[in-house]
C-alpha cells in the first residue's frame, strides 16, 4: 500500500475506510470461529463418553465426567487464544462472544453442582435452554440468521426432548446434537471470511 496521498480523493478515502473496517471485522469474527469448533468438539466427545458410560453401566454417576470438560477445555482455549492473537486481534464482538459463552459455562457448571449437591432437577433441560439462549444471542451479535434459528431450535426443541428423555442416558445425545450445532457455527464463522 502506497503512502502517497496525491490521488486520494474523499470518495477513495471513504471506500478505503469501509473496506479496511469490513476486512478487519471479518478476520476477527473468523478468529472466533475456532473457539466454537473447539467447544463443539469437546461437547461432542464428553456427551458421547457420558452416554456410552451411562448406557453400558446403567449408572448416571458417569455424569461426573462433565466436570472434566472445563478442566480440559479452558487450557486448550487459552492456548488457542495465544495462537490466534498472531492472526487476529479482539474487538467488541469477539469479546462479547467470549463473555456470552463464559457466562453459559459458569451457569452450566453452577447449576450442575447445585443439582448434585442439594437441589435435584432436570439438569439437561436447564443446560440445553441456556445453550439455546447463548447460541441465539451469539447469532444476534453476529447478525447471522442461521445461527439465531439454530439456537432457537436447539433451545426449544432440546427443552421438549429433555423432558421426554429425562430419565435415561439418551438425553446425552441432546448435547451431541447441540455440539454439532456449535461446531457448525464455528465453521460458518470461518467460511464467512
Amino acid at each position: 500500500m502506497e503512502t502517497n496521498n496525491n490521488d486520494l480523493t474523499p470518495q477513495r478515502s471513504l471506500q478505503l475506510i469501509n473496506e479496511t473496517l469490513e476486512s478487519n471485522r471479518r478476520s476477527i469474527i473468523a478468529g472466533s470461529g475456532s473457539f466454537f469448533i473447539l467447544w463443539g468438539v469437546l461437547l461432542a466427545v464428553f456427551s458421547l463418553a457420558v452416554y456410552f458410560g451411562w448406557s453400558r453401566s446403567g449408572h448416571p454417576a458417569w455424569n461426573i465426567l462433565w466436570f472434566a470438560m472445563p478442566v480440559v477445555g479452558y487450557p486448550l482455549a487459552f492456548l488457542l487464544d495465544r495462537r490466534s492473537k498472531d492472526k487476529a486481534p479482539q474487538n467488541f464482538i469477539s469479546s462479547l462472544l467470549g463473555r456470552i459463552w463464559g457466562t453459559f459455562g459458569f451457569f452450566s457448571i453452577s447449576i450442575s453442582a447445585l443439582a448434585i449437591a442439594a437441589f435435584p432437577m432436570n439438569i439437561s433441560l436447564v443446560i440445553i435452554v441456556l445453550f439455546g439462549c447463548a447460541e441465539t444471542i451469539s447469532g444476534i451479535a453476529l447478525k447471522n440468521w442461521p445461527i439465531i434459528i439454530a439456537g432457537a431450535i436447539v433451545g426449544l426443541g432440546g427443552a421438549c426432548a429433555a423432558v421426554r428423555l429425562a430419565s435415561g442416558p439418551e438425553q446425552m445425545l441432546l448435547f451431541t446434537g447441540a455440539a454439532v450445532v456449535l461446531a457448525l457455527t464455528g465453521v460458518a464463522l470461518k467460511i464467512r471470511k
Partner: peptide, 12 residues
C-alpha cells in the same frame, strides 16, 4: 488511514 481503520475496529 488503513492502519487507523484497523485500529478503530479492534481493541489492539
Amino acid at each position: 488511514l488503513a492502519v487507523m481503520s484497523v485500529l478503530i475496529g479492534s481493541d489492539e
